[in-house]
Structures are given as structure tokens and as C-alpha cells.
């Protein structure tokens, strides 16, 4: 297998996803299948080909540096679970 159950757990943790312990084996197998396909594509000789950064063959349009937005704090904080003095409140992140 190209990816071990331990690595599945690590990736799940990095992505903050809770994964059922019973599913880990199956995920490892499925993901290894995908990586196997990638491995197969890696065999193709791509020397001299510029790596693709985006499937659309276009380049980025730029925006003029103008302030177009107004304060919408009340609306945007309406869904927040906890707000105080204009701040979003979240569980403490440092000890």
C-alpha cells in the first residue's frame, strides 16, 4: 500500500476531520489506489512541458486598487456563535 493507515490518521488530523477508526483501513486502500494512478502518470516523460497551474488556459485579471466595500459587521456577525465588542469569540488558542 502506498499510504498506510497511520498516514491516513495524520492527514485526517491535519484537515481536522474526524475519521471512524473502522474506516481507516478502507480509506488507506482507496487512497492508495488513487496514488497508484498518480504513480502511473508519473511514468510519463514530461520533460520540456511547463507544469499546469490551472485547467483554464487564461491569465489572472487584475482589479484596480479601489475601496468598494462598506462596513457590514452587524450582518456578517449575525451567524457568529459568540461576539463581544465587535470581536468574534473563539475557544482560547494559547495556554
Amino acid at each position: 500500500m502506498l499510504i498506510t493507515p497511520n498516514e491516513v490518521m495524520k492527514i485526517a488530523h491535519l484537515a481536522r476531520m474526524s475519521v471512524d477508526h473502522d474506516d481507516v483501513e478502507r480509506y488507506a486502500k482507496d487512497l492508495s489506489g488513487i496514488l497508484g494512478l498518480v504513480e502511473q502518470m508519473n511514468q510519463v516523460d514530461v520533460r520540456g512541458i511547463e507544469p499546469m497551474a490551472h485547467p483554464l488556459d487564461m491569465c489572472q485579471r487584475l482589479r484596480a486598487d479601489v475601496v468598494t466595500e462598506v462596513n457590514q459587521r452587524d450582518t456578517l456577525q449575525a451567524h457568529a456563535p459568540a461576539v463581544e465588542r465587535g470581536l468574534f469569540l473563539v475557544p482560547k488558542v494559547i495556554e
Binding site: 486598487d65 466595500e69 457590514q72 470581536l87
Partner: peptide
């Protein structure tokens, strides 16, 4: 810059919290 890198919100320093966040 006057506005943010990916949005048209002001970058001015010292505004009330979250009044410059779209």
C-alpha cells in the same frame, strides 16, 4: 495599497474591530 489584496475592503489601520472585513 488602499484596498486588500483580494477584496475591495479598506486596509486603513486602527478601525473598529471587524468593520473592515468583508
Amino acid at each position: 495599497t488602499k484596498s486588500k489584496i483580494f477584496s475591495g475592503t479598506s486596509t486603513a489601520f486602527g478601525a473598529e474591530p471587524n468593520t473592515q472585513a468583508n
